Amino acid sequence: MNRQVVEEFRANGGKVGGFFEDDNIVLLTTVGARSGQPRVSPLVYFEIDGRILIAGSFGGAPKAPAWVHNLRATPRVRVEIGTEAYDAEAIELPLEERNALYRRVVDMAPQFGEYQAKTDRVIPLFELARV
């Protein structure tokens, strides 16, 4: 599914249909923590106070998505939003800041509150800061 979303995103200037149709989508290219290979993940992003944030929700699964592990190992990433691409540093937000901003994420997308309720782990928030 990711490959189709990535192809559609790139072919349509950052617009996609289906599951992600009404969401803000970022293509995040990370370096695989084990493989060292580039990995592209289409993710929902949130723009809050001029910051680009992504949440490692994995739909509330007990384990974080692979891209979270990749970011923790190598925080330098490539970001694609719309037709723009740039290098960024993924900064995991400290718990207090994460908690304050996660409430705002839930206000924008209530399903993220449901994801947090489904798991015991704290769903991390990362800022994608342009470098």
Rank of each mutant, 00 (worst) to 15 (best):
V6T: 11
E7Y: 06
E7V: 13
E7G: 10
E8P: 07
F9R: 03
R10Y: 06
R10L: 07
N12G: 11
G13E: 13
K15G: 08
V16F: 12
V16W: 10
G17K: 09
G17P: 08
G17L: 12
G17C: 06
G18K: 09
E21A: 15
D22G: 11
D22V: 06
D23A: 12
N24E: 13
N24F: 09
I25F: 04
V26I: 15
V26C: 10
L27W: 10
L27V: 03
L28F: 08
L28E: 02
G32M: 02
G32Q: 04
A33E: 13
A33Q: 14
A33L: 04
S35Q: 12
S35M: 11
G36M: 05
Q37P: 05
R39V: 02
R39C: 02
R39N: 07
V40K: 12
V40S: 14
S41T: 15
P42Q: 09
V44P: 00
Y45T: 13
Y45P: 09
F46Y: 11
F46D: 01
F46S: 04
R51L: 01
R51E: 08
I52N: 12
A55Y: 01
F58Q: 14
F58A: 15
G59S: 06
G59R: 06
A61N: 14
P62I: 07
A64W: 02
A66R: 11
A66P: 07
A66D: 14
W67K: 02
R72W: 12
T74A: 03
R76E: 01
E80S: 15
E80Q: 14
E80G: 12
E80A: 14
I81A: 14
I81H: 10
G82Y: 06
T83H: 11
E84A: 15
A85H: 11
A85C: 10
Y86N: 04
D87Q: 14
D87E: 15
A88Q: 05
A90Y: 10
A90M: 10
E92I: 02
L93F: 07
E96R: 09
E96I: 05
N99P: 01
A100F: 05
A100G: 06
L101N: 10
L101Q: 12
L101R: 09
Y102E: 00
Y102D: 00
R103A: 14
R104H: 03
V106L: 00
D107S: 08
D107F: 03
A109C: 05
F112H: 01
F112T: 00
G113D: 00
G113Y: 00
A117E: 04
R121A: 04
V122E: 07
